[in-house]
Design a protein around this nucleic acid. Structure first.
Length: 487
RNA sequence: GGCCCUUUAGUCAAGCGGUUAAGACAUCGCCCUUUCACGGCGGUAACAGGGGUUCGAGUCCCCUAAGGGUCACCA
């Protein structure tokens, strides 16, 4: 690194989904750069042509955009170190591999996949680590040329030292040492001419002047190979920052579909991007303070590699839910109406007042997707299970409901203004006149209006949303139902 | 299985040789109250085990155990 600008990169392979663990890596990479006023680069790692997925790159752009991460260089916006898509850089890797061959640090290999598979099976049976047997290491120059001329498929392998050890310093884990004899002569260039990730990432990171290589700790064991590569080229290695893994609840790597592990799923389920960001940044990082709510721009100032923990953490949505609810509650009423309306629309006709409904449910919603179920009783009166009138705490029972509901009905009929305040007054004054607690009046009213034991909102709010006419209609219906019952 | 990493409550975590071992989520109880929720108050709950080093160890070292990662012409 000739100068000390911090440059990090997010280098996803376009698989079509952005996983939570992946997004967290992107976040950390972004923050490590931004906290030092550095650059954050997006690079697409698509050297595996078999895994190409249509539209996958757009998913990556969209995700970054939604969470508010802006890259400084990338395929869509360019930069001084492009191209930023590995398949477009294909031509540039082979010369580097050949340079290594010149130096005696790499060699051609013509082994068939069948032969390699054989080796693998044998190693498996013998219960030893599978390692390429260097069958092609000592081919003569002439034979190599002959086979190359004959267009035989080949790969290029990195020649590993078989004695000694390799140590590198990790910004999170400290010094990590490996015996060189565990390192396999890994493939650098595949027979289709593409580089492997193991080779391309080193070349690209160097060429793009990446100062901090930030990635999941699953790469810890292959990092000595990269270090050896840097050494072979005579390049200064970057600072390695390996991140602890995110595990699923039962344990194990959170990688395949497990729960709400995809960012897009979370958004679809009604999680707020800023809550998700806040939550996942805390999964594996701590500021050391008591603060737990952070905006992205705050994080851009306070994030510190030192706060990254070594141990993996479990992705448990309990706290995410709470945090999302917290973000929802912190919205202004106007903001909440805006984000909640699409969800209310799923359950209710637009004749009902959205603002009133929202003020009723805002404190009760944790995840937006709960909204339709929460409000659907407003659309249609449910058939009432009359046992719901029984409630010990408010001293209500079916007979009390029978007595009180008609009184309320008459009061409502007489009302001129029908709003939150006047409804509340009507209920409380009724209670006073009858010499009973408010609860004894409110309880049967709420049951009559909703048909539900629990509702988002009380009798007053519900009546207000419903309006005088519908309120009366539901209470009448409830009275008629009660009249038909003895007890 | 070899190698590498990790290990503070159910979960996220603070701690960096001397603390009554923070805080948050979850859970439980109480209060507020028109149900539920919100809010307020409080409770239960942790240094994986064993050896050292030290006057003193969650903090340093070693061993064991458990969990995870990795051993591809995937990234």
């Amino acid at each position: 690194m000739s100068h000390n600008e911090v440059r990090t990169r997010y280098a996803p392979s376009p698989t079509g989904f952005v996983h939570i663990g992946n997004l967290r890596s992107a976040l950390y990479e972004y923050l490590i750069a931004k906290v030092k006023n550095g650059k954050f680069i997006l690079r697409i790692e698509d050297t595996d042509q078999k895994r190409y997925v249509e539209g996958a790159v757009d998913v990556i752009y969209d995700t970054l955009k939604i969470v508010g991460i802006k890259h400084d260089e990338g395929p869509d916006i360019g930069g001084h170190y492009g191209p930023y898509v590995q398949s477009e850089r294909k031509h540039l890797y082979l010369p580097y591999a050949k340079q290594l061959i010149e130096k005696g640090k790499a060699y051609y290999c013509f082994c068939s996949e069948e032969r390699l598979e054989d080796l693998r099976v044998k190693a498996e049976k013998a219960k030893v680590q599978n390692k390429y047997d260097r069958h092609c290491l000592n081919l003569s120059k002439e034979e190599i040329q002959r086979r190359l001329d004959a267009k035989e498929p080949y790969v290029i392998r990195q020649l590993m030292p078989d004695t000694g050890e390799t140590t590198y310093n990790d910004a999170v884990y400290g010094d990590i040492t490996f015996n060189n004899d565990v390192l396999e002569d890994q493939i650098l260039i595949k027979s289709d001419g593409f580089p492997t990730y193991n080779f391309a990432n080193v070349i690209d990171d160097h060429l793009m002047k990446i100062s901090h290589v930030v990635r999941g700790s699953e790469y810890i064991t292959s990092t000595p190979k990269y270090v050896l590569l840097y050494e072979a080229f005579g390049w200064e290695p970057p600072i390695f920052v390996h991140l602890p893994l995110v595990e699923k609840l039962g344990g194990g790597k959170l990688s395949k579909r497990s729960g709400d592990a995809y960012f897009s799923d979370l958004i679809k389920a009604g999680y707020l991007p800023e809550a998700v960001v806040n939550f996942i940044v805390l999964l594996g990082w701590s500021s050391g303070t008591e603060q737990e709510f952070y905006t992205l721009s705050e994080l851009e100032k306070v994030f510190d590699i030192k706060g990254i923990s070594k141990s993996s953490s479990v992705y448990d949505t309990d706290k995410l839910k709470w945090m999302n609810g917290e973000y929802i509650r912190r919205k202004t009423p106007e903001e909440f109406v805006k984000i909640a309306s699409p969800w209310i629309d799923k359950a209710l006709p637009d004749t009902l007042d959205r603002t009133k409904i929202c003020s009723m449910i805002q404190k009760r919603v944790e995840v937006l997707s709960e909204i339709p179920d929460m409000v659907k009783f407003l659309k249609k009166a449910k058939p009432i299970d009359i046992s719901l009138y029984n409630n010990e705490k408010s001293k209500c029972n079916i007979n009390e409901a029978k007595r009180i509901l008609p009184i309320i009905r008459d009061k409502i009929v007489a009302m001129e203004d029908f709003n939150h305040e006047s409804i509340y007054l009507m209920f409380t004054s009724t209670a006073q006149e009858l010499g009973v607690k408010n609860g004894l009046v409110m309880w049967p009213a709420r049951i009559a209006l909703s048909g539900q034991l629990v509702t988002a909102g009380g009798a007053v709010e519900i009546a207000d949303v419903l309006g005088k006419q519908e309120t009366l209609k539901r209470i009448d219906k409830a009275i008629k139902q009660l009249e038909k019952t003895d007890a």
